[in-house]
């Protein structure tokens, strides 16, 4: 029973679209980032860094919902990429998630932009 969505329950949906803009690998996130779906985003960043893609942009503009678990993934991703000589850009033109970044002070810790650099 643990770890599954159970019978008939709507699966929390997370969509991860990968693209390249300039020197950034861009992960465009649709759907909901919460403690159930956040591991997928964490794994996507890991996968990119294992392929040597150390400049990563996570685009939250199309994201429907993000909770603190998602914020934790952003912080972890920034740390891992920075430690490896790379960088993380968080793209967020979404006022609801922008508010979350602001009230946690993460807008000052993370590199938050309106668009992917070079776009």
């Amino acid at each position: 029973m643990r770890g599954t969505a159970g019978d008939g329950a709507a699966e929390p949906e997370l969509g991860l679209g990968l693209s390249t803009v300039g020197e950034y690998a861009v992960i465009s996130v649709t759907g909901e980032i919460d403690m159930y779906t956040a591991p997928q985003l964490r794994e996507a960043v890991r996968q990119l860094s294992s392929e040597g893609r150390m400049r990563v942009a996570i685009d939250l503009t199309p994201t429907e919902f993000c909770d603190s678990t998602g914020l934790g993934v952003l912080i972890g991703a920034r740390r891992r990429l920075s430690d490896a000589g790379g960088s993380l850009v968080v793209v967020c033109g979404n006022p609801r998630i922008r508010k979350l970044l602001d009230l946690t002070g993460l807008d000052k810790v993370l590199d938050v932009r309106e668009a992917v650099p070079g776009e």
């Binding site: 914020l71 934790g72 993934v73 912080i75 972890g76 009230l103 946690t104």
Partner: peptide, 21 residues
């Protein structure tokens, strides 16, 4: 290790978010 660290971090952040929200 990373997951645990993020979980620990997340509990802290939940309270920050709740306090701000």
């Amino acid at each position: 290790h990373d997951t645990i660290e993020e979980d620990t971090l997340s509990e802290e952040i939940t309270l920050i978010v709740l306090g701000g929200l």
